[in-house]
Nucleic acid binder design. Structure first.
Lengths: 229, 229
DNA sequence: GTCATAGTTTTCGTATACGATTTCGTACTC
DNA sequence: GAGTACGAAATCGTATACGAAAACTATGAC
């Protein structure tokens, strides 16, 4: 029997996936009011599974919930962006460092190809594609991470970031250019079997630099930078 | 008006808090089967809010959920312990580093007092109290962490650890002794205004060492150690 | 024009009910 | 005795319903 007979996802699961997808892809942008009855109708289910789904998303930080009021997509605040990026820089750095020893030549080649594509995107100015490729690139670096908890945190961070991007995040061409170079440097470090500590530091700085680039154009910081040199 | 008129927590909130507390304090130990109807009756509410609470706890990693079967308290597997500790070492290290610049002399004094109490516990062999004090100690170091996401991750890690302790974790006197010394060293680093990077490293190693002590007596590792010197 | 107030509408929170699925136990066959 | 089939019990999954809280709107006083 093939995998065709997949378990017909419960309505609760459906609702969870659907709402999450809409938050991540920007259909529901930060501040959007999630009305149970409305979503339930859209999805053709009752409110109970929808409510359950939303509470789960709350636990992941994608939505904010207020008693007797309802849920809204979280992350209007620019500070949120800062916190998310900072957290991501930490878990991503760790994930990369843990994966590094398990990354083979084939993976490196794949990542490098993606990175070269990213370089091309810079010339044609294709931020959307660039962003997607960036995710692919890092996915290659993470996929061997032996600790699923850390991997999960990275994914949550990415989702969060995706949900914020439409209103907060801006593509900064100059920064993007540096980013591609940093990717290459990161690959070299991994190739040459650098110490985990060094790889972690590089990966973290890579992410922090993006945060700094953001802060430079929207200065409003009040949290310490982890990229303390 | 005083704070007495606190919002009368929704049943869903009650259920969430109650079940979480029971998992953390060990009433429901790993593998325990969480039956909706039973919990609902215990708490005097219907199954809907209980179900919601359990799903939220699932998102936090405290319980595992299986379609049409039910929820069980997660963490039977020793590997879980490893993953949790490793993740905790990372976020805790970061949290401590971020807090450090904001820690004042009064905080240091408080932490030191707690640590001295811990030293006494070693002489009277009081693991329970030791563990609680250990949490207090680290709480002092975290409480100023400006990034709430990271703080949240630390708390989740602690909860997770607490839920696992009854079956997996073992108090290792030798390790506990080192631990107290490391605490003191950590305080000195903070006092002298050491670089964030250095503090982070020390905090991480402090946690990793506990993990290593565990692995030494229950060797079954297959994940890379982040304490790569 | 601004503010307060009362009434209406929206939306949430949860109990209840019932069908669907899984699990468990028993009897039957080989 | 091992294995299978079937039926009963336990448990989950979700629709529906209704009371409670909040948000909104309109009306009137100043």
């Amino acid at each position: 029997m093939s995998e065709t007979a997949a378990p017909p996802a419960s309505k609760s699961e459906q609702a969870y996936a659907a709402v999450k997808a809409r938050i991540v892809d920007g259909t529901y942008s930060p501040g959007y009011r999630l009305v149970l009855a409305k979503i339930a109708e859209d999805l053709g289910v009752s409110v109970v599974p929808v409510r359950e789904a939303i509470r789960r998303l709350e636990a992941e930080g994608l939505v904010q919930f207020e008693r007797n009021v309802g849920a809204t997509v979280s992350g209007i605040d620019p500070t949120e962006y800062l916190y998310t990026m900072q957290t991501l820089s930490i878990v991503e750095g760790a994930a990369t460092a843990l994966s590094a020893p398990l990354i083979g030549a084939a993976d490196i080649a794949r990542a490098r190809a993606v990175n070269e594509e990213m370089r091309e995107c810079l010339q044609h100015f294709d931020p959307v594609r660039f962003t997607r490729l960036n995710q692919d690139f890092h996915s290659v670096l993470f996929e061997h991470c032996p600790n699923p908890h850390i991997l999960d945190l990275v994914h949550r961070g990415w989702n969060r970031l995706a949900s914020l991007r439409s209103s907060t995040f801006r593509f900064v061409p100059g920064r993007a250019h540096d980013s591609v170079d940093e990717h290459e440097a990161l690959l070299r470090l991994i190739e040459t079997g650098a110490a985990a500590e060094e790889i972690e530091k590089a990966a973290r700085l890579h992410r922090s630099a993006t945060l700094d680039a953001y802060l430079a154009q929207a200065p409003k910081s009040n949290a310490g930078s982890l990229s303390a040199q």
